[in-house]
Simulated assay, not measured.
Amino acid sequence: MTESIQEDNAQGFHTEHWPTDLKYKSDERALHITFENGKNFALPAEYLRVESPSAEVQGHHPSQKQILSGRSMVGIMAIEPVGNYAVRLTFDDLHDTGIYSWQYLYKLATEQETIWQTYLDEMEKRGLSRNP
């Protein structure tokens, strides 16, 4: 499955970096995104799922954030544009309530190492596994 979204140089919505290309590669289970500044990133579906901006995952306060286990094999089934500022990802575990703004995707991309390590540390601390 390959989905592609081409964005024009839109303005507004407090977004500093806009994607110029967004493709999901199912064989890698990764969302490949290129921003207007030329930076390219590959974001694993598992990473996007466990860091979903949905209230189900993030809660309504940082202290309510959920640590999801068993998502190592998750994939993305659909990518739906939301206006010109975000996409809604539908995962094969049927989670589809997170709206990933360009700003949030850029943060996940540029801070991936730190965010992922924090997730792994929390999983270990709680005795949880990434495996289903």
Results as ranks from 00 to 15, higher is better:
E36N: 15
I79D: 03
I5Q: 06
V87Y: 02
E46Y: 02
E46S: 08
T34N: 10
N40R: 13
T20R: 08
T15Q: 10
Q64E: 15
I5W: 05
S101P: 10
V57G: 02
T15P: 01
E36Q: 13
Q66L: 13
Q6D: 07
S26M: 06
K125N: 09
Q66Y: 12
I79V: 10
T2R: 10
R71F: 03
E7T: 07
M1P: 04
R49G: 02
A109I: 03
E80I: 14
F35T: 01
G127E: 03
A45W: 01
V87G: 00
P81I: 06
Y106R: 08
P62I: 08
G83L: 11
E51Q: 15
S129D: 02
Q58Y: 08
G12Y: 10
L128G: 03
Q58P: 03
Y47H: 05
D8A: 10
L128W: 13
F13N: 05
V57A: 09
R88T: 11
S63R: 11
S4R: 10
S129P: 00
V82I: 12
I67Q: 01
W102G: 02
E51D: 11
N40H: 13
L68E: 00
T118M: 07
I33V: 14
L128D: 06
E36I: 12
R29C: 03
A30T: 04
P62F: 15
G75C: 04
M1I: 08
S101T: 15
L94H: 13
P19E: 09
F35M: 06
I5Y: 06
D92C: 03
D121C: 03
T114G: 09
V82P: 04
I33K: 00
G75T: 07
K65F: 01
Q64I: 07
A109R: 00
V87K: 01
P81R: 07
T90W: 05
G98E: 05
N131Y: 06
G83M: 09
R29L: 09
E3Y: 14
S52F: 07
P62M: 09
E113R: 13
L48M: 13
T90M: 09
H32V: 11
F91W: 07
E46P: 01
E7Y: 06
T34E: 14
E56G: 14
T90N: 04
T20E: 07
L89K: 00
P132G: 02
D93H: 08
A109S: 12
P132Y: 04
K25Q: 13
N40G: 07
A78T: 10
Y100Q: 04
T34L: 15
M1K: 11
D93P: 02
M1H: 10
V50W: 00
E28S: 11
D93E: 13
H14R: 09
G98A: 12
G38E: 15
D8I: 05
Q64F: 14
E113N: 15
P81V: 05
P81W: 04
T15W: 01
R88M: 12
M73L: 11
G59F: 07
N131H: 12
E56N: 14
N84A: 06
L105H: 03
M73K: 10
D92H: 09
F91R: 03
L94P: 01
P44I: 06
N37P: 09
A10V: 07
S26C: 08
T90L: 15
S4T: 12
Q64H: 15
G12M: 03
V82N: 06
A30M: 04
L108P: 00
N84I: 10
P19Q: 07
A42G: 05
N9D: 04
R88Y: 10
D93S: 11
V87I: 15
N131K: 11
E113L: 11
E3G: 06
